[in-house]
């Protein structure tokens, strides 16, 4: 579903190399401990491409988005955007320039619009902060355009309303309009449809696909839903307990998953087609605590194929060719 024609001509939109992020615990009882939210996370998002970051809650996918948006700074590892390694911001101009390139769409359409502001005062902020409008008339034109391209027209009707006067789907469209207002090159979408009513999810997803096509942005699409990831993205990376377990072209990974966790996720996902012929799950349990992650492979306590060596060392992300990578000793055989 993605368009990666000119990927070779441009540097990747985004590249993470062994990024680590820990959140130290502040309480005295847990002195010296930390939440291992991201460990050795590496991936490449091609310019104009789309990568789905799939994982259950607590897998570190939202932290990854926040680190890329630089709401938090990573502890170690490289973050490269449009071929430029990210460095600490020296001034506000640098910070603004970065934020103009990388934008986030949040999950909660209710929480991400300030209830005390009108849609106008919410939506004009990106233009004002980044100095994108040339006078009052231009700002008006841009506001209308921003709303109309997400399917909210007549724009004037929406501009004077407050968030609570809009439905969930309309609010999320306002959020997306705000994201695209700064003309970013990378959009990080954190479960943008999971809190919407089911019947309107596809409308928002299709609109995002159309916007991507028209604006040539790159998507990092964060979701817990494999089927949604398949619909939205050309590539997929599956995270578990802060680490990427498998990465590759979406169709390949879903059809022919290698990592036991990805297989488990696939067999657990609702799929009417498979119907009653479904095989029962071969593993149970839940994502481990990220404060004391298991030694070695983080999936080994639940893994039906675990071997003694899985407990000892964290497997490397092995290259299977064809853009696929798997963090599992099984893949090396």
């Amino acid at each position: 579903m993605s368009d990666e024609r000119d990927a070779a001509a441009r540097p990747p939109a985004l590249e993470l190399r062994s990024v680590v992020k820990r959140f130290p615990l502040r309480s005295l009882a847990a002195y010296g401990k930390a939440v291992h939210a991201m460990d050795d996370v590496s991936f490449v998002l091609e310019a104009g491409g789309s990568l789905a970051l799939v994982g259950e809650s607590g897998s570190g996918k939202t932290t990854t988005a926040s680190v890329i948006a630089r709401l938090y700074e990573r502890d170690s590892g490289d973050l490269v955007v449009d071929g430029e390694p990210a460095r600490p911001f020296r001034n506000r101009a640098e910070s603004l320039a970065y934020k103009k390139k990388v934008q986030l769409i949040f999950q909660d359409p209710f929480g991400s619009l300030n209830p005390t502001h009108t849609i106008r005062s919410i939506l004009e902020r990106p233009f004002l902060i980044h100095g994108l409008a040339d006078g009052r008339a231009d700002l008006e034109a841009r506001l209308s355009e921003a709303l109309e391209q997400v399917g909210l027209s007549p724009a004037a009707e929406y501009l004077r309303r407050f968030p609570h006067e809009l439905s969930g789907g309309q609010r999320q469209r306002v959020n997306i309009a705000r994201t695209f207002a700064v003309e970013p090159s990378i959009v990080l979408a954190d479960e943008p449809t999971s809190m919407l009513d089911v019947s309107i999810r596809m409308g928002v997803m299709n609109m995002m696909l159309d916007l991507k096509e028209r604006k040539g942005v790159s998507y990092l699409y964060i979701t817990h839903d494999l089927a949604g990831a398949r619909y939205m993205c050309g590539s997929i990376a599956v995270m578990y307990a802060g680490m990427i377990m498998e990465i590759g072209p979406t169709e390949d990974v879903i059809r022919d998953a290698v990592h036991p966790y990805v297989k488990l996720l696939k067999s657990a996902s609702p799929s009417p087609e498979s119907g009653l012929a479904r095989a029962p799950l071969d593993a149970s349990g839940e994502i481990p605590s990220l404060i004391d992650p298991p030694s070695g492979c983080r999936f080994h306590p639940r893994c039906p194929y675990a071997e003694p060596r899985c407990r000892e060392a964290v497997p490397e992300l092995a290259d299977l060719g064809g853009g696929r990578g798997v963090r599992c000793v099984l893949a090396l055989r």
Binding site: R201, Y231, P270
Partner: peptide, 14 residues
């Protein structure tokens, strides 16, 4: 409104 996981990939409209 529910994209397919294993079936053919087609545009869905909700």
């Amino acid at each position: 409104s529910f994209p397919s996981l294993t079936g053919p990939l087609r545009r869905m409209d909700g």
